[in-house]
Amino acid sequence: METQKQTTMVVFSGDLDKAMASFIIATGAAAMGSKVTMFFTFWGLNILRKEQFVPVQKSLLEKMFERMMPRGPGKLGISKLNMGGMGSALMRHIMKKKKVASLPELMELARELDVEMIACTMSMDVLGIKEEELIDGLKFAGVATYLGEAEQSKVNLFI
Protein backbone atom coordinates (compact mmCIF):
# COMPACT_ATOMS: atom_id res chain seq x y z
CA MET A 1 0.00 0.00 0.00
CA GLU A 2 1.43 3.36 -1.04
CA THR A 3 1.08 6.21 1.42
CA GLN A 4 0.25 9.77 0.43
CA LYS A 5 3.16 12.16 0.03
CA GLN A 6 3.40 14.71 2.84
CA THR A 7 4.95 18.15 3.04
CA THR A 8 5.24 20.12 6.26
CA MET A 9 6.56 23.56 6.99
CA VAL A 10 7.10 25.85 9.91
CA VAL A 11 6.09 29.40 8.98
CA PHE A 12 8.06 31.51 11.47
CA SER A 13 8.45 34.72 9.48
CA GLY A 14 5.80 37.38 9.07
CA ASP A 15 7.56 39.01 6.10
CA LEU A 16 5.50 39.33 2.92
CA ASP A 17 8.10 37.76 0.64
CA LYS A 18 8.60 34.77 2.95
CA ALA A 19 4.84 34.36 3.42
CA MET A 20 4.43 34.37 -0.38
CA ALA A 21 7.14 31.72 -0.74
CA SER A 22 5.47 29.58 1.95
CA PHE A 23 2.09 29.64 0.22
CA ILE A 24 3.54 29.17 -3.27
CA ILE A 25 5.37 26.05 -2.08
CA ALA A 26 2.34 24.81 -0.10
CA THR A 27 -0.11 25.21 -2.97
CA GLY A 28 2.37 23.73 -5.44
CA ALA A 29 2.91 20.67 -3.25
CA ALA A 30 -0.85 20.27 -2.69
CA ALA A 31 -1.51 20.56 -6.44
CA MET A 32 1.02 17.75 -6.95
CA GLY A 33 -0.96 15.49 -4.61
CA SER A 34 0.92 16.04 -1.36
CA LYS A 35 -0.83 16.38 2.00
CA VAL A 36 0.44 19.76 3.24
CA THR A 37 0.62 21.00 6.82
CA MET A 38 1.70 24.57 7.60
CA PHE A 39 2.54 25.33 11.25
CA PHE A 40 2.43 29.09 11.95
CA THR A 41 4.43 30.21 14.95
CA PHE A 42 5.62 33.53 16.41
CA TRP A 43 5.71 36.24 13.70
CA GLY A 44 4.16 33.87 11.15
CA LEU A 45 0.90 34.19 13.08
CA ASN A 46 0.57 37.76 11.78
CA ILE A 47 -0.18 36.31 8.34
CA LEU A 48 -3.29 34.70 9.82
CA ARG A 49 -4.58 37.74 11.71
CA LYS A 50 -7.87 39.25 10.57
CA GLU A 51 -7.31 42.70 9.13
CA GLN A 52 -10.23 44.21 11.01
CA PHE A 53 -9.95 44.85 14.75
CA VAL A 54 -11.61 42.20 16.92
CA PRO A 55 -12.37 43.36 20.47
CA VAL A 56 -11.07 40.79 22.94
CA GLN A 57 -9.97 40.99 26.56
CA LYS A 58 -6.19 41.52 26.79
CA SER A 59 -3.57 42.52 29.32
CA LEU A 60 -1.59 45.75 28.84
CA LEU A 61 1.40 43.84 27.42
CA GLU A 62 -0.82 41.89 25.03
CA LYS A 63 -2.37 45.16 23.83
CA MET A 64 1.13 46.55 23.22
CA PHE A 65 2.07 43.51 21.09
CA GLU A 66 -1.22 43.84 19.22
CA ARG A 67 -0.47 47.43 18.22
CA MET A 68 3.12 46.70 17.18
CA MET A 69 2.40 43.71 14.95
CA PRO A 70 0.94 43.85 11.44
CA ARG A 71 -2.68 42.77 11.15
CA GLY A 72 -3.07 40.30 8.29
CA PRO A 73 -1.49 39.73 4.88
CA GLY A 74 -2.24 43.24 3.61
CA LYS A 75 -0.06 44.85 6.27
CA LEU A 76 3.07 42.69 6.02
CA GLY A 77 6.38 44.28 5.09
CA ILE A 78 9.14 42.65 3.07
CA SER A 79 12.30 41.24 4.65
CA LYS A 80 14.75 43.46 2.75
CA LEU A 81 14.41 47.05 1.50
CA ASN A 82 11.01 47.60 3.10
CA MET A 83 11.78 51.33 3.52
CA GLY A 84 8.88 52.14 5.80
CA GLY A 85 6.40 50.16 3.71
CA MET A 86 7.44 51.53 0.31
CA GLY A 87 9.20 48.27 -0.59
CA SER A 88 6.17 46.11 0.12
CA ALA A 89 3.88 48.54 -1.74
CA LEU A 90 6.22 48.40 -4.75
CA MET A 91 6.34 44.61 -4.58
CA ARG A 92 2.54 44.35 -4.46
CA HIS A 93 2.27 46.77 -7.40
CA ILE A 94 4.74 44.82 -9.54
CA MET A 95 3.11 41.49 -8.65
CA LYS A 96 -0.31 42.83 -9.65
CA LYS A 97 1.09 44.23 -12.90
CA LYS A 98 2.75 40.87 -13.69
CA LYS A 99 -0.48 39.01 -12.73
CA VAL A 100 1.16 37.16 -9.84
CA ALA A 101 -1.36 35.90 -7.30
CA SER A 102 -1.55 38.03 -4.17
CA LEU A 103 -0.98 36.58 -0.72
CA PRO A 104 -4.74 36.58 0.09
CA GLU A 105 -5.39 34.78 -3.22
CA LEU A 106 -2.72 32.18 -2.42
CA MET A 107 -4.20 31.70 1.04
CA GLU A 108 -7.64 31.09 -0.47
CA LEU A 109 -6.13 28.63 -2.98
CA ALA A 110 -4.44 26.81 -0.09
CA ARG A 111 -7.84 26.40 1.57
CA GLU A 112 -9.35 25.08 -1.66
CA LEU A 113 -6.50 22.55 -1.92
CA ASP A 114 -7.08 21.40 1.69
CA VAL A 115 -3.76 22.68 3.01
CA GLU A 116 -3.90 22.25 6.79
CA MET A 117 -2.98 25.47 8.59
CA ILE A 118 -2.12 25.14 12.27
CA ALA A 119 -1.72 28.14 14.58
CA CYS A 120 0.78 27.48 17.38
CA THR A 121 -1.08 27.85 20.65
CA MET A 122 2.08 28.50 22.67
CA SER A 123 3.08 31.40 20.40
CA MET A 124 -0.48 32.71 20.50
CA ASP A 125 -0.32 32.74 24.28
CA VAL A 126 3.09 34.48 24.35
CA LEU A 127 1.99 37.17 21.87
CA GLY A 128 -1.49 37.57 23.34
CA ILE A 129 -3.24 36.51 20.14
CA LYS A 130 -6.72 35.06 20.65
CA GLU A 131 -8.47 32.54 18.34
CA GLU A 132 -11.14 35.14 17.47
CA GLU A 133 -8.46 37.41 15.98
CA LEU A 134 -7.35 34.84 13.43
CA ILE A 135 -8.95 33.85 10.13
CA ASP A 136 -11.48 31.03 10.02
CA GLY A 137 -10.61 27.46 9.11
CA LEU A 138 -7.49 27.04 11.23
CA LYS A 139 -6.49 24.25 13.56
CA PHE A 140 -5.03 25.25 16.93
CA ALA A 141 -2.32 23.02 18.37
CA GLY A 142 1.14 22.82 19.84
CA VAL A 143 4.47 21.63 18.58
CA ALA A 144 3.73 17.95 19.30
CA THR A 145 0.98 18.00 16.65
CA TYR A 146 3.34 19.57 14.12
CA LEU A 147 6.13 17.10 14.93
CA GLY A 148 3.73 14.19 14.47
CA GLU A 149 3.01 15.44 10.95
CA ALA A 150 6.69 16.20 10.25
CA GLU A 151 7.73 12.66 11.19
CA GLN A 152 5.56 11.35 8.35
CA SER A 153 6.79 13.94 5.85
CA LYS A 154 9.49 13.60 3.21
CA VAL A 155 9.70 17.39 2.80
CA ASN A 156 10.00 19.59 5.87
CA LEU A 157 10.73 23.32 5.54
CA PHE A 158 11.37 26.21 7.92
CA ILE A 159 10.47 29.62 6.48
Rank of each mutant, 00 (worst) to 15 (best):
K99C: 06
K99D: 11
G28D: 06
M124D: 05
L134C: 05
N82H: 06
M68W: 09
T41L: 00
L60F: 15
A119Q: 01
K130H: 08
N82I: 06
T37W: 00
G87W: 05
S22A: 14
G84I: 04
M32Q: 14
G72A: 11
L147F: 14
M68D: 11
T27N: 08
A101Q: 10
V11K: 00
E112G: 12
A31E: 11
S153N: 12
I159D: 03
V126F: 02
I25R: 06
R92E: 09
K75I: 07
M122E: 02
D17R: 07
A141L: 04
T121N: 00
A150Q: 07
I118T: 00
F42R: 02
A141P: 01
M32N: 12
G137N: 05
E51C: 08
M95R: 11
F39M: 02
W43D: 12
A150D: 04
K63T: 13
F40A: 09
I94W: 13
R92P: 07
E105P: 01
K154P: 02
M9R: 02
L134T: 03
M107N: 05
F39T: 05
A141D: 10
M38P: 02
T41N: 00
G28A: 06
E132V: 06
F40G: 02
A144T: 14
P73L: 12
L90M: 13
M122L: 11
E108C: 03
I159C: 06
D114G: 03
G128C: 04
M64Q: 15
K18V: 05
G33R: 04
T7Q: 10
T27F: 03
L103G: 02
L61D: 13
L103N: 06
D17K: 05
K5Y: 08
